[in-house]
Amino acid sequence: MNEFQLLAFARGIGFQIAVAIFLMGMMLRLTEIYSLGRKPNLAEPRLVSGASGWHTLYRRFAPPPGMLQTAYITYIGGYVFHIGFMMVFLLFAQHIKMIQELTGLSWPPLPAPIIDFITVVTLVAMLVVLVDRVRAPVKRFLSGFGDYLAWTITFLPVLTGYLAVKHLFLSYTTLLALHIVSVEIFLVLLPFTKIAHTATVWPSRWFNGNTNGRKGVPV
């Protein structure tokens, strides 16, 4: 298989398969998780404004007092990498074209030099959080194969995308193909790795906010 055929595969049947596995996986995972149900809470709720599942959905974006100073690498690295990743994904012209094809929605892109800059910052942030994962005792202790796998499959699309746009090291065709293949790997593994938190984080926050919000504690 040469690079053009790889690209044709990646854009064609490869992407179809990846999207299919992703959708099937998400459907399966979300069903198997949320069908477990929970018992109704019979305790008389204490109604306090600001304490609910919906509040916790957004409140958890901000660090609790003092935590930013205590764990600044985790927080700042995490913010930069998440926001950078989403910006590059959602505001790069070529990506918007793809999203438009899938959903019919489109919006104005950021200029390419700005996207380039954000990509570099994102890559640096991801490397920093990786080094921190290896060095910080708690993270190293908690981390296993799944954590490093998740990091790798998230890092590769950003890296290959950047190299492709910049025409570095390999031909554009090869890099574009590798970029799309790396995205496909990401999609396929997403439902079955900790990257599934992209979906489960919202119900998790809601459950926590709901449970504690009923007690009148805005968590």
């Binding site: 998780i33 477990l36 764990a71 995490g78 998740a150 489960t200 459950f207 926590n208």
Partner: peptide, 14 residues
């Protein structure tokens, strides 16, 4: 369901 959701959400941030 909440427990399942929590256990799937953990990213080992520490």
């Amino acid at each position: 369901a909440p427990i399942a959701s929590y256990l799937n959400s953990c990213v080992h941030c520490g």
